[in-house]
């Protein structure tokens, strides 16, 4: 008998994330912030925005996974986060399909 609507998650222990994890994440974020500002002053050509975005994504992942507890959350919440990312990427890629292929475009 399946009754996962109400009970599936009751068995999932509510995970308390402690100060140790928070501090570790905090220092990682600080280091990344320093790193991204430092890298910005070095001429790496096209790699500059790539690195800046990669660091930003890494930082965002740390916040989502640990500060926002997604690392310890149910599959449903993980899926929710993923779907938000997916729809944003749909907006970006489908819009870009227009912008990158315009004959008169500035791309």
């Amino acid at each position: 008998m399946s009754q996962h609507g109400a009970t599936e998650l009751e068995h999932q222990e509510h995970h308390v994330v402690g100060p140790k994890v928070y501090l570790a994440v905090f220092f990682a974020l600080m280091i990344c912030t320093g790193l991204t500002t430092w890298v910005a002053f070095i001429d790496l050509g096209v790699l500059n925005p790539v690195i800046a975005l990669a660091i930003a994504c890494f930082k965002a992942c740390l916040v989502v996974l640990f500060f926002m507890h997604i690392h310890y959350s149910s599959k449903l919440l993980k899926l929710t986060v993923a779907s938000g990312l997916f729809i944003f990427l749909v907006l970006v890629t489908m819009t870009l399909s227009d912008y990158i292929s315009r004959a008169w475009g500035l791309w």
Binding site: L91, M94, S97, R102
Partner: peptide
Amino acid sequence: GFFVWAHHMFIMGISNYSALVF
């Protein structure tokens, strides 16, 4: 439904390739 919106824009000057995809 999230993948088709630009069919409202075929005559507005979007790129032909993009219009084809949409």
